[in-house]
């Protein structure tokens, strides 16, 4: 089944026509990667799915149901976790409190999930009572992912988790994502091609607010020309 269908959406930010026809599918139990140059519209696409920059045309179906016109908190409650590009950790709150704000129910199940997440990110366990603002970049990224996963989350949206992280942190986050993807469908924006090709199955390329190409990640690894053309990398 298809977890998420994005059908030809168009999104304006103020008067700017940012997305002009973005289209892709995110199949269940897979990692789908969105690629594209800086300013291609990847983040805006994520925000449109979450309802933070609502799409004015086209449609977005989550588990077969249209969510295009729903407000962000309703979309989140349907089971979509969002890890934004800048992590958006609540810096005045501790790690524990960041997770508590996210928990929609405080019961055994969410406690179990939190335990699982903290095992996935031992760094967070150590920093549990530290304020978000005092975490390292890598720890913030881990917390942002943990916060999105603390509720039942069939679909996880992650926007450039490797951005600005030291290589060792990128490794740690990747390892965790490899575990997460076994139980969660993932839509990943990633400029770090090596990382993207390691965990992604399927890719879509955005350019100037449009989907311009898609295929299996393996094909892209072999196709230098295509990478050169849309991503500017060899």
């Amino acid at each position: 089944m298809t977890m998420l269908q994005v059908r030809n959406i168009e999104t304006y930010i103020q008067e700017f026509h940012i997305l002009q026809g973005v289209e892709f599918d995110v199949p269940e139990q897979e990692v789908t990667v969105l690629l594209g140059r800086n300013g291609a519209g990847k983040t805006t696409t994520m925000r449109s799915i979450m309802g933070l920059n609502p799409a004015t045309k086209g449609d977005i179906l989550f588990q077969g149901e249209s969510i295009r016109e729903l407000p962000p908190h309703v979309i989140a409650k349907k089971g979509i976790g969002y890890v934004p590009e800048d992590q958006d950790i609540f810096s005045d709150l501790t790690v524990q409190e960041n997770l508590r704000v996210a928990k929609r129910k405080e019961n055994e199940k969410t406690e179990e999930r939190e335990k699982w997440i903290l095992e996935l990110f031992p760094d967070l366990k150590i920093a549990y009572t530290r304020k978000g603002g005092n975490l390292s970049g890598g720890q913030k990224q881990m917390l942002s992912i943990a916060r999105a996963l603390v509720n039942e989350t069939p679909l996880l949206l992650i926007d450039e988790p490797s951005k600005g992280l030291a290589p060792i942190m990128v490794e740690k986050v990747m390892e965790a994502l490899n575990v997460i993807k076994q139980t969660t469908t993932v839509l990943l924006v990633e400029q770090n091609f090596r990382m993207a090709s390691k965990i992604g199955e399927r890719f879509y390329i955005l350019d100037e607010g449009r989907t311009v190409h898609h295929g299996q990640m393996r094909q892209l690894e072999e196709d230098k020309e295509l990478r050169q053309k849309y991503l500017g990398i060899a």
Binding site: L52, P72, H73, P84, F90, L93, R100
Partner: peptide, 18 residues
């Protein structure tokens, strides 16, 4: 906690389902 989080970042609080 939600109020304090909201003072800092309203959008993120919404994106968490609140």
């Amino acid at each position: 906690l939600v109020v304090r989080a909201g003072v800092e970042n309203k959008e993120m609080v919404q994106a968490l389902g609140i």
